[in-house]
């Protein structure tokens, strides 16, 4: 039997949920603390529930002013979202516009000058991106601290793993069916990857302050019962893709899903458990 690695764990509240960091073997003694700090820095930068770089930016955008982005985390987040536009078929859009007439495409984002502006009043909400992005930053912090095996969770709907399972091989996860939480919807194997789960039903979807899933340009939330599951090297990309899959129409969903790492499930009561679009 192989020697078991040293373990450690850290649980705390951030990004509006419970974050768990589990490390196995190797690395600096304060690696978990560094990862926690990385997540808190993302939370501080991207939150819209207390004063932050994002709320300051939103104040400027709402009044049609050009905002200079001085927070490096916020700038990095905007660049990642901008870079992911094509991959998500422009279906992930963090802009909030009460009239639903303009979106990300209306923003003038100059990544070199670190400025952003819009002719119309608009604001940004990083839900559907933030947790995955925070896990990416924490993964980086752990790796830089020498950790080669770890599991990170933000609310159990965003997961990232570093390396193989501490006992060897892949990390295996069972994803529950939101209609029937004791039943498994799908099992997935991960190594050095991130997992994101989005859904329009389930306990979390009824939570206060939970933003509705909006299709860009559409005024109404997506109400069809569905869940999307995406595995990707990047937690941020997994998060954006799972959101895009939720809001996609059938044609777009077919282009986005691959049946193995990008999936969307129809969760109408009569639907079989495993139905792709």
């Amino acid at each position: 039997m192989r020697a078991l690695p040293a373990t450690g764990e850290l649980c705390f509240s951030a990004m509006g949920t419970r974050v768990e960091l589990h490390r196995f073997g190797g690395g600096a003694a304060d690696a978990l603390a560094q990862a926690e700090r990385a997540i808190e820095m993302v939370d501080d930068a991207l939150t819209i529930h207390r004063p932050s770089s994002t709320t300051a930016l939103n104040e400027a955008l709402r009044s049609r002013q050009t905002a200079t982005i001085t927070d490096p985390i916020l700038l990095d987040a905007l660049i990642r979202i901008d870079d992911a536009r094509a991959a998500t078929l422009e279906l992930f859009d963090p802009t909030i516009d009460a009239r639903h007439t303009v979106g990300w495409e209306a923003l003038r984002f100059d990544r070199q000058a670190a400025t952003i502006s819009c002719a119309d009043p608009i604001a940004l909400d990083f839900g559907g991106f933030g947790k995955g992005y925070a896990l990416d930053r924490a993964v980086l912090a752990l790796q830089e601290a020498g950790v080669g095996c770890a599991l990170l969770s933000a609310g159990e709907s965003s997961i990232a793993v570093i390396g193989e399972h501490p006992l060897g091989g892949t990390w295996s996860f069972a994803i529950p069916d939101p209609r029937q939480p004791e039943a498994t919807l799908v099992e997935l194997e991960l190594v050095d990857e991130a997992l994101s789960i989005s859904a329009t039903i389930g306990a979390g979807s009824a939570a206060p302050e939970r933003a509705a899933m909006l299709r860009p340009g559409a005024p109404s939330p997506v109400t069809a019962p569905r869940t999307a599951i995406v595995v990707d090297r990047s937690g941020a990309m997994a998060e954006m893709l799972s959101t895009a899959l939720i809001v996609a129409d059938d044609a777009a969903a077919l282009r986005l899903h691959d049946g193995a790492r990008r999936m969307r499930f129809d969760l109408t009561p009569a639907a079989p458990t495993r139905i792709f679009v």
């Binding site: 969770s153 709907s157 006992l167 295996s172 069972a174 389930g202």
Partner: peptide, 12 residues
Amino acid sequence: KRTIPIGGATWF
């Protein structure tokens, strides 16, 4: 080692 049953979208 066994499969980890995470909460997914049902967890809050």
